[in-house]
Design a protein around this nucleic acid. Sequence first.
DNA 1: AGCACA
Length: 513
Amino acid sequence: MSTSSQPQFRYTQTPSKVLHLRNLPWECAEEELVELCKPFGKIVNTKCNVGANRNQAFVEFADLNQAISMVSYYASSSEPAQIRGKTVYIQYSNRHEIVNNKSPGDTPGNVLLVTIEGVEPNDVTIETIHLFGDIVMYVILLSRVYPEACMLRCHSELISRPFAYANSDFSHYAIACDVFSAFGFVHKIATFEKAAGFQALIQFTDAETASSARNALDGRSIPRYLLPDHVTSCYLRISYSAHTDLNIKFQSHRSRDYTNPYLPVNPTAMEGLMQPVVGPDGKKQEPQSNVLLASIENMQYAVTVDVLHTVFSASGTVQKIAIFEKNGGTQALIQYPDVTTAAVAKESLEGHCIYDGGYCKLHLSYSRHTDLNVKAYSDKSRDYTISDPSLLATQVPGLPAAPNAWQNPQGVPVHHGTDYSASAAIQGQLLAGQVPAWDPNFQARLPYGSVPGQTYQSLTAPTYVNVARPAGSSPLSQPGASSMPMQQQQQPPWANVRQGGAAELGQPPYYSR
DNA sequence: AGCACA
């Protein structure tokens, strides 16, 4: 269309009763905008803190002529428009009304979402994140009501080592308490790591308390002296969460429920903190967990949820999977029902490659998570514990999916076109010992043309098929893998793969053609 | 210093 090819005219503004203001001072208040604009007419709407730097705004006049009068006034004025002595640049907006789509984050609630940003990706080590996490916990937790108690309760190590903690340096927390003044009783806290950085959900009694905390802390920087030396700055970005009541399952170093002192302490966190496991080499080992963290090295090929499910199912039932990017690499969390299964998986898969040739090498460690909160069905995550028709059909071949399984509580698209009876039949064939062809959907994503020496055929038969069929030089078929449960011989993990891939894409299974 | 929000 011709309309799409006119970015060169972007700055030639046609008049609008909405004005776009930029170069505003930091955290410019609506009142300051109104002060500047109201001499020219009636302001009916504003939108502040727009843009990545939150230094732009929109002002909507009641009448177009009022907007024109303001623009033309400053166009010919010797004195530029200013707020707090800073020149403000004004132009017509390319829209004709302000749509105050208040983002959910601006809709007040009693739960705040705190994001710590302003950190170089490479600076974010686990240790750094821990430190940030602690700070946020301290900061937010140090409520006026229980300053001492909160200070004590909020530190992860205190769960198990109160006396060690009592001797440690409290100055940081005093500072934190001082800098981030207290706002009221904090009911619950959940912390987690996102691509955006470290985040925490902080539940207050009510929206008023939450908003006073937000107003005071949003955009504030955590003081340098509270941060590791190499981190130059670090900002708190605070918005409102849509949550009203956090579901805290354990008291742990990641989450707290201050309203329920009887809530169990996360046994995993407890275990790890009580007696830091020391390996034979004397190095500290991370506490065990039912959730594995997999870092994927040399990731030449797409590693999908289904691929991971296949690989990690060899050791036992996989409950949930989440794939994410971190520090430029790909990582995944794999949740098992228990620590033992996870330990078996870690033992048998550590250092192995998903594909021959050293591609997609797995490095496994125990995650701090115990229960992943993932979308039931996305391209980056899967919750196999949710009763979903496609999963039911996968996990219970031959069993018709229960009618109510079609009710999808997660709002995940349901692919009604999938023929599950056909799937079950095919699965029967697979179980009868047929070597499955590789899912063409995966083939399409594999850069098979770019790998010298790799034939298309070798890619269509991924190495990890050998998990169930020890043969060749595949790392996954090395002796270490012989500890795989025998049931895998009868029910190869890859039996699930193609179906999952097909269902994900909403296509009929390719093998039914 | 250059256009929101899903």
